[in-house]
Protein backbone atom coordinates (compact mmCIF):
# COMPACT_ATOMS: atom_id res chain seq x y z
CA UNK A 1 0.00 0.00 0.00
CA UNK A 2 1.41 3.34 -1.00
CA UNK A 3 -0.03 6.73 -0.28
CA UNK A 4 1.34 9.52 -2.39
CA UNK A 5 1.37 13.07 -1.21
CA UNK A 6 2.30 15.85 -3.63
CA UNK A 7 3.01 19.08 -1.79
CA UNK A 8 3.38 22.46 -3.45
CA UNK A 9 5.44 21.13 -6.33
CA UNK A 10 6.92 23.80 -8.62
CA UNK A 11 9.26 23.37 -11.56
CA UNK A 12 10.76 25.92 -13.92
CA UNK A 13 12.63 25.22 -17.13
CA UNK A 14 14.62 28.42 -17.51
CA UNK A 15 12.02 31.16 -17.39
CA UNK A 16 9.21 28.76 -18.28
CA UNK A 17 7.12 27.71 -15.32
CA UNK A 18 6.13 24.11 -16.12
CA UNK A 19 4.48 23.44 -12.78
CA UNK A 20 3.20 25.96 -10.25
CA UNK A 21 2.56 24.98 -6.67
CA UNK A 22 0.76 21.72 -7.41
CA UNK A 23 -0.56 19.70 -4.50
CA UNK A 24 -2.55 16.46 -4.43
CA UNK A 25 -3.20 13.65 -2.00
CA UNK A 26 -3.48 10.18 -3.47
CA UNK A 27 -4.78 7.56 -1.08
CA UNK A 28 -3.51 3.99 -1.19
CA UNK A 29 -5.52 1.70 -3.46
CA UNK A 30 -6.98 4.54 -5.49
CA UNK A 31 -6.71 5.52 -9.14
CA UNK A 32 -5.81 9.13 -9.73
CA UNK A 33 -6.23 10.66 -13.18
CA UNK A 34 -4.23 13.65 -14.31
CA UNK A 35 -5.92 15.62 -17.08
CA UNK A 36 -4.85 18.65 -19.02
CA UNK A 37 -4.04 19.98 -22.47
CA UNK A 38 -0.57 19.46 -23.94
CA UNK A 39 2.03 21.32 -21.92
CA UNK A 40 -0.16 21.40 -18.82
CA UNK A 41 2.55 19.93 -16.60
CA UNK A 42 1.45 16.29 -16.39
CA UNK A 43 4.76 14.74 -17.49
CA UNK A 44 6.68 17.28 -15.41
CA UNK A 45 4.67 16.18 -12.39
CA UNK A 46 5.57 12.54 -12.99
CA UNK A 47 9.26 13.35 -13.48
CA UNK A 48 9.40 15.39 -10.29
CA UNK A 49 7.62 12.63 -8.35
CA UNK A 50 10.17 10.06 -9.42
CA UNK A 51 13.26 12.19 -9.04
CA UNK A 52 13.89 12.26 -12.79
CA UNK A 53 13.61 16.00 -12.65
CA UNK A 54 14.49 18.13 -9.65
CA UNK A 55 11.58 20.24 -8.42
CA UNK A 56 12.43 23.87 -7.65
CA UNK A 57 10.24 23.72 -4.59
CA UNK A 58 7.78 21.42 -2.92
CA UNK A 59 8.08 17.69 -2.37
CA UNK A 60 6.50 14.32 -3.01
CA UNK A 61 6.09 11.93 -0.11
CA UNK A 62 5.59 8.18 -0.35
CA UNK A 63 3.79 6.91 2.75
CA UNK A 64 5.00 10.13 4.34
CA UNK A 65 8.64 9.74 3.34
CA UNK A 66 10.68 11.46 0.64
CA UNK A 67 11.73 9.28 -2.28
CA UNK A 68 14.48 6.80 -1.37
CA UNK A 69 16.39 4.40 -3.64
CA UNK A 70 14.79 1.29 -2.14
CA UNK A 71 11.30 2.62 -3.08
CA UNK A 72 12.06 1.98 -6.74
CA UNK A 73 11.47 -1.70 -6.11
CA UNK A 74 7.80 -0.86 -5.46
CA UNK A 75 7.24 1.78 -8.14
CA UNK A 76 6.79 1.20 -11.86
CA UNK A 77 6.85 4.06 -14.32
CA UNK A 78 5.69 3.97 -17.92
CA UNK A 79 6.86 7.17 -19.57
CA UNK A 80 4.97 8.71 -22.46
CA UNK A 81 7.87 8.19 -24.83
CA UNK A 82 9.26 4.70 -25.11
CA UNK A 83 12.55 4.23 -23.28
CA UNK A 84 13.08 0.67 -24.46
CA UNK A 85 16.37 -0.30 -26.09
CA UNK A 86 16.02 -0.75 -29.85
CA UNK A 87 18.60 -3.52 -30.08
CA UNK A 88 17.16 -5.64 -27.28
CA UNK A 89 14.28 -8.11 -27.47
CA UNK A 90 11.15 -7.82 -25.32
CA UNK A 91 12.30 -10.96 -23.48
CA UNK A 92 15.62 -9.34 -22.64
CA UNK A 93 13.79 -6.31 -21.27
CA UNK A 94 11.72 -8.59 -19.08
CA UNK A 95 14.89 -10.32 -17.88
CA UNK A 96 16.19 -6.88 -16.89
CA UNK A 97 12.93 -6.15 -15.12
CA UNK A 98 13.14 -9.48 -13.27
CA UNK A 99 16.53 -8.49 -11.87
CA UNK A 100 15.35 -5.01 -10.92
CA UNK A 101 12.09 -5.88 -9.14
CA UNK A 102 11.93 -8.37 -6.29
CA UNK A 103 8.16 -8.96 -6.78
CA UNK A 104 8.50 -9.59 -10.54
CA UNK A 105 6.27 -12.44 -11.72
CA UNK A 106 7.33 -14.39 -14.83
CA UNK A 107 3.88 -15.97 -15.00
CA UNK A 108 2.23 -12.56 -14.98
CA UNK A 109 4.62 -11.41 -17.70
CA UNK A 110 3.59 -14.35 -19.88
CA UNK A 111 -0.11 -13.62 -19.37
CA UNK A 112 0.44 -9.98 -20.26
CA UNK A 113 2.50 -10.80 -23.35
CA UNK A 114 -0.41 -12.95 -24.51
CA UNK A 115 -2.87 -10.18 -23.67
CA UNK A 116 -1.03 -7.73 -25.92
CA UNK A 117 -0.18 -10.44 -28.45
CA UNK A 118 3.55 -9.74 -28.15
CA UNK A 119 6.35 -12.11 -29.12
CA UNK A 120 9.15 -11.86 -26.51
CA UNK A 121 11.72 -12.81 -29.16
CA UNK A 122 11.04 -9.65 -31.14
CA UNK A 123 13.51 -6.81 -31.04
CA UNK A 124 12.15 -3.45 -29.99
CA UNK A 125 13.33 -1.85 -33.26
CA UNK A 126 10.80 -4.04 -35.10
CA UNK A 127 7.85 -3.04 -32.93
CA UNK A 128 5.10 -0.59 -33.86
CA UNK A 129 4.35 2.34 -31.55
CA UNK A 130 1.40 0.50 -30.03
CA UNK A 131 3.50 -2.63 -29.49
CA UNK A 132 6.16 -0.57 -27.71
CA UNK A 133 3.51 0.85 -25.41
CA UNK A 134 2.27 -2.69 -24.83
CA UNK A 135 5.78 -3.94 -24.04
CA UNK A 136 6.34 -1.10 -21.56
CA UNK A 137 3.04 -1.94 -19.87
CA UNK A 138 3.93 -5.64 -19.68
CA UNK A 139 7.18 -4.64 -17.95
CA UNK A 140 5.39 -2.33 -15.50
CA UNK A 141 2.56 -4.65 -14.50
CA UNK A 142 4.66 -7.82 -14.29
CA UNK A 143 6.93 -6.02 -11.80
CA UNK A 144 3.94 -6.19 -9.43
CA UNK A 145 4.64 -2.78 -7.89
CA UNK A 146 2.61 -1.01 -5.19
CA UNK A 147 2.57 2.26 -7.14
CA UNK A 148 2.12 2.59 -10.88
CA UNK A 149 2.90 5.87 -12.60
CA UNK A 150 1.55 5.74 -16.14
CA UNK A 151 2.03 8.64 -18.55
CA UNK A 152 -0.50 8.30 -21.39
CA UNK A 153 -0.60 4.50 -21.05
CA UNK A 154 -3.05 4.00 -23.90
CA UNK A 155 -1.40 6.16 -26.55
CA UNK A 156 -0.93 4.37 -29.84
CA UNK A 157 -3.12 1.43 -28.81
CA UNK A 158 -6.20 0.22 -30.66
CA UNK A 159 -9.56 0.40 -28.82
CA UNK A 160 -9.41 -3.25 -27.77
CA UNK A 161 -5.97 -2.85 -26.22
CA UNK A 162 -6.98 0.48 -24.67
CA UNK A 163 -9.80 -1.34 -22.94
CA UNK A 164 -7.36 -4.04 -21.82
CA UNK A 165 -5.14 -1.37 -20.24
CA UNK A 166 -8.09 0.10 -18.35
CA UNK A 167 -8.91 -3.35 -17.05
CA UNK A 168 -5.30 -3.80 -15.91
CA UNK A 169 -5.53 -0.52 -14.03
CA UNK A 170 -8.86 -1.52 -12.47
CA UNK A 171 -7.55 -4.97 -11.58
CA UNK A 172 -4.48 -3.48 -9.90
CA UNK A 173 -6.59 -0.96 -7.99
CA UNK A 174 -8.95 -3.71 -6.80
CA UNK A 175 -5.84 -5.47 -5.42
CA UNK A 176 -4.94 -2.37 -3.43
CA UNK A 177 -2.32 -0.85 -5.73
CA UNK A 178 -2.09 2.89 -6.14
CA UNK A 179 -2.18 4.22 -9.69
CA UNK A 180 -1.59 7.67 -11.03
CA UNK A 181 -2.06 8.09 -14.75
CA UNK A 182 -2.53 10.76 -17.38
CA UNK A 183 -4.65 10.55 -20.49
CA UNK A 184 -6.07 12.72 -23.20
CA UNK A 185 -9.00 10.35 -23.41
CA UNK A 186 -11.37 11.78 -20.87
CA UNK A 187 -13.76 8.86 -21.30
CA UNK A 188 -11.06 6.51 -20.05
CA UNK A 189 -10.33 8.67 -17.04
CA UNK A 190 -14.06 8.89 -16.38
CA UNK A 191 -14.20 5.09 -16.15
CA UNK A 192 -11.02 4.19 -14.35
CA UNK A 193 -10.18 7.11 -12.07
CA UNK A 194 -11.68 7.78 -8.70
CA UNK A 195 -10.07 11.19 -8.28
CA UNK A 196 -8.86 13.63 -10.89
CA UNK A 197 -6.85 16.80 -11.15
CA UNK A 198 -7.04 19.11 -14.15
CA UNK A 199 -3.87 21.04 -14.90
CA UNK A 200 -3.39 23.87 -17.36
CA UNK A 201 -0.20 25.84 -17.95
CA UNK A 202 1.27 24.21 -14.86
CA UNK A 203 -1.56 25.31 -12.60
CA UNK A 204 -4.16 23.19 -10.88
CA UNK A 205 -7.60 24.24 -12.15
CA UNK A 206 -9.83 21.67 -10.57
CA UNK A 207 -9.52 18.56 -8.43
CA UNK A 208 -11.98 16.17 -6.88
CA UNK A 209 -13.68 12.81 -6.93
CA UNK A 210 -15.11 12.13 -10.40
CA UNK A 211 -18.47 11.00 -9.06
CA UNK A 212 -18.78 14.00 -6.76
CA UNK A 213 -17.86 16.44 -9.54
CA UNK A 214 -20.55 14.91 -11.73
CA UNK A 215 -23.10 15.26 -8.93
CA UNK A 216 -22.15 18.86 -8.24
CA UNK A 217 -21.89 20.33 -11.72
CA UNK A 218 -25.06 21.17 -13.64
CA UNK A 219 -26.03 23.36 -16.52
CA UNK A 220 -28.98 25.51 -15.52
CA UNK A 221 -30.52 27.46 -18.35
CA UNK A 222 -33.61 29.48 -18.99
CA UNK A 223 -35.24 31.60 -21.67
CA UNK A 224 -35.91 35.29 -21.10
CA UNK A 225 -38.54 37.36 -22.81
CA UNK A 226 -36.07 39.79 -24.33
CA UNK A 227 -32.39 39.83 -25.12
CA UNK A 228 -31.43 42.42 -22.52
CA UNK A 229 -30.82 39.86 -19.84
CA UNK A 230 -29.35 41.09 -16.62
CA UNK A 231 -26.78 38.52 -15.56
CA UNK A 232 -24.99 40.83 -13.14
CA UNK A 233 -26.34 39.14 -10.06
CA UNK A 234 -25.58 35.67 -11.40
CA UNK A 235 -22.07 36.72 -12.37
CA UNK A 236 -21.34 37.42 -8.72
CA UNK A 237 -23.16 34.33 -7.45
CA UNK A 238 -20.59 32.03 -5.84
CA UNK A 239 -22.57 28.96 -6.91
CA UNK A 240 -22.19 29.90 -10.57
CA UNK A 241 -18.88 29.22 -12.36
CA UNK A 242 -19.91 30.61 -15.73
CA UNK A 243 -22.67 32.61 -17.39
CA UNK A 244 -23.24 32.64 -21.14
CA UNK A 245 -26.05 34.11 -23.14
CA UNK A 246 -27.09 33.24 -26.67
CA UNK A 247 -29.95 35.40 -27.84
CA UNK A 248 -32.64 35.07 -25.21
CA UNK A 249 -31.19 31.92 -23.68
CA UNK A 250 -29.10 32.34 -20.57
CA UNK A 251 -26.97 29.38 -19.60
CA UNK A 252 -25.10 29.01 -16.34
CA UNK A 253 -22.71 26.35 -15.22
CA UNK A 254 -23.30 25.69 -11.57
CA UNK A 255 -21.04 23.90 -9.13
CA UNK A 256 -23.38 23.82 -6.19
CA UNK A 257 -27.09 24.10 -5.40
CA UNK A 258 -28.43 23.87 -8.97
CA UNK A 259 -32.04 23.92 -7.71
CA UNK A 260 -31.34 27.20 -5.94
CA UNK A 261 -29.87 28.72 -9.10
CA UNK A 262 -32.84 27.42 -11.12
CA UNK A 263 -35.18 29.16 -8.66
CA UNK A 264 -33.09 32.33 -8.99
CA UNK A 265 -33.43 32.22 -12.80
CA UNK A 266 -37.20 31.89 -12.43
CA UNK A 267 -37.25 34.79 -9.99
CA UNK A 268 -35.38 36.89 -12.59
CA UNK A 269 -38.20 36.14 -15.05
CA UNK A 270 -36.81 33.19 -17.01
CA UNK A 271 -39.18 30.61 -18.38
CA UNK A 272 -38.47 27.04 -19.46
CA UNK A 273 -35.77 26.72 -16.83
CA UNK A 274 -34.05 23.36 -17.10
CA UNK A 275 -31.16 21.52 -15.52
CA UNK A 276 -28.77 19.32 -17.44
CA UNK A 277 -26.12 16.96 -16.04
CA UNK A 278 -22.49 17.52 -17.06
CA UNK A 279 -20.15 14.67 -17.83
CA UNK A 280 -16.44 14.81 -17.15
CA UNK A 281 -15.64 16.07 -20.63
CA UNK A 282 -18.02 19.00 -20.18
CA UNK A 283 -16.49 19.73 -16.78
CA UNK A 284 -13.00 19.51 -18.27
CA UNK A 285 -13.83 21.82 -21.18
CA UNK A 286 -15.49 24.26 -18.81
CA UNK A 287 -12.34 24.31 -16.70
CA UNK A 288 -9.76 24.68 -19.49
CA UNK A 289 -11.75 26.62 -22.09
CA UNK A 290 -9.25 29.21 -23.42
CA UNK A 291 -11.81 31.97 -23.98
CA UNK A 292 -13.28 31.84 -20.55
CA UNK A 293 -11.07 30.54 -17.78
CA UNK A 294 -12.91 28.79 -14.97
CA UNK A 295 -14.41 31.19 -12.51
CA UNK A 296 -14.36 34.06 -14.98
CA UNK A 297 -17.73 35.27 -16.10
CA UNK A 298 -18.73 36.14 -19.63
CA UNK A 299 -20.82 39.25 -19.61
CA UNK A 300 -23.22 39.83 -22.41
CA UNK A 301 -23.38 43.42 -23.67
Amino acid sequence: MTALSIRNLSKNYGTFAALKDFSAEIAPGTVFGLLGPNGAGKTTTFKCLLGLSRADSGEALFDGMPLQPQFFDRIAYVPEKSVLYDWMTIGQHLEMQKRAFSAFSARRAEELLALFDLDPRKRVRNLSKGMRTGAALVMAFSANPDLLVLDEPTSGLDPLNQRAVLKLIIDAAADGKTIIFSSHQIGQVERAAEHIAILQNGKLLLAGAVEDLKSEYKIVEGIFSDERISSNGLARDPRVTRVETTGRVLRTIVRDDSSGVAAELERLGASNVRMVDLNLEDIFLNAVSPNTPAGEIVEQA
Binding site: E111, A114, L115, F116, D117, L160, N161, R163, A164, K167, L168, G187, E190, R191, V210, E211, D212, K214, S215, Y217, K218, V276, D277, L278, N279, E281, D282
Partner: peptide, 25 residues
Protein backbone atom coordinates in the same frame (compact mmCIF):
# COMPACT_ATOMS: atom_id res chain seq x y z
CA UNK B 1 -4.63 -9.43 -29.50
CA UNK B 2 -6.87 -12.09 -28.00
CA UNK B 3 -9.63 -11.00 -25.71
CA UNK B 4 -8.88 -12.43 -22.26
CA UNK B 5 -9.34 -8.91 -20.92
CA UNK B 6 -12.87 -8.66 -22.26
CA UNK B 7 -15.73 -10.44 -20.57
CA UNK B 8 -19.41 -10.52 -21.26
CA UNK B 9 -21.18 -7.86 -19.24
CA UNK B 10 -24.09 -9.25 -17.23
CA UNK B 11 -27.18 -8.09 -19.07
CA UNK B 12 -28.90 -6.62 -16.03
CA UNK B 13 -26.13 -4.09 -15.43
CA UNK B 14 -25.26 -1.60 -18.11
CA UNK B 15 -23.86 1.77 -17.25
CA UNK B 16 -23.15 4.82 -19.33
CA UNK B 17 -19.90 6.30 -18.04
CA UNK B 18 -20.20 9.33 -20.34
CA UNK B 19 -23.50 10.29 -18.79
CA UNK B 20 -23.55 13.16 -16.34
CA UNK B 21 -25.23 10.87 -13.83
CA UNK B 22 -22.62 9.47 -11.43
CA UNK B 23 -21.86 5.83 -12.19
CA UNK B 24 -22.54 4.65 -8.63
CA UNK B 25 -26.05 6.14 -8.82
Amino acid sequence: MGSPGLTLVPAIFTIDPRSGVPIYL
